[in-house]
């Protein structure tokens, strides 16, 4: 329990130090753009592939269930609402934690082990400002964008299967899918993406910086980053879902 509380405390202090540096504008635009490309563009294929298959499976499952009630036409409503409210943000975040978060934790952890982080400090540079801040900012900006794209891919994938299975016309499918999504849903979707991106960024960089100075320590940091990111994303999702239901 003491170790858990100490870790939470240290994570809080680390997060505070990252936020302080945001206010001091200590990040170079070139490095921020490089990180945005790295964490965003390079993740497009894996996140979208995941969204496509989830969309396909969702249509398969819901269409057979809805057929029992003679409501196959509502597939688009369910796919649209489910993707924008829950599946899009949560699955994109989980894939992001696996694809980007673990990579960042391993990268910074390796830099700790090989004294590269010490070299930053020896040069009079702040490793949190130089290494953590651009990555956290890039992840906060890029995950909502990835989430939005993955929702479109998932809904489109669902449409292709629905068309093949039931022959539902594209216009009707899209009308129903869009009708199921309110502006608050869109706001919630993008907000969840940004907040999940921020949390994954903070957890990944913190895991890297706190890696024990051994090769095994890098592995531990990577695993810890993934597990903690998924847990925190799911808890945050519950809170945010409740919040957006209240304001919606």
């Amino acid at each position: 329990m003491k170790i858990f509380l100490t870790s939470v405390g240290n994570f809080g202090i680390f997060s505070g130090s990252v936020f302080t540096r945001i206010s001091r504008k200590q990040v170079r635009s070139g490095e921020l753009i490089r990180q945005m490309y790295r964490v965003g563009v390079d993740s497009l294929s894996v996140v979208n592939l995941c969204a496509l298959f989830i969309g396909l499976v969702l249509v398969l499952q819901t269409s057979s269930l809805l057929a029992r009630f003679g409501a196959e036409g509502q597939v688009a409503t369910i796919v649209g609402a489910a993707f924008v409210r829950e599946i899009g943000p949560v699955f994109a975040a989980i894939m992001f934690a696996g694809r980007v978060g673990t990579g960042v934790a391993a990268e910074i952890g390796s830099m700790v082990v090989t004294e590269q982080v010490d070299a930053y400090r020896a040069f009079g540079l702040d490793p949190v400002a130089k290494l953590a801040l651009p990555r956290v900012m890039a992840m906060t900006v890029m995950l909502p964008a990835l989430t939005a794209i993955s929702c479109l891919v998932g809904i489109t994938g669902g449409y292709l299967l629905a068309y093949a299975e039931t022959g539902v016309p594209g216009g009707i499918y899209l009308d129903k899918a869009l009708a199921a999504v309110t502006p608050i849903d869109v706001l919630g979707c993008l907000s969840k993406g940004a907040i999940f991106g921020l949390l994954i960024g903070l957890i990944a960089t913190y895991s890297g910086f706190s890696a024990p100075r051994t090769t095994e320590g890098v592995g531990e940091a990577t695993t810890r980053s993934m597990v903690n990111s998924v847990l925190v994303v799911l808890v945050a999702d519950l809170i945010l879902t409740k919040f957006f239901m209240l304001i919606g």
């Binding site: 090989t114 590269q116 010490d118």
Partner: peptide
């Protein structure tokens, strides 16, 4: 620190 330089045992080059 900027007035100092340190040559690390491992080199600590940015790989």
């Amino acid at each position: 620190r900027r007035k100092m330089g340190m040559v690390f045992q491992s080199g600590a080059l940015f790989d």
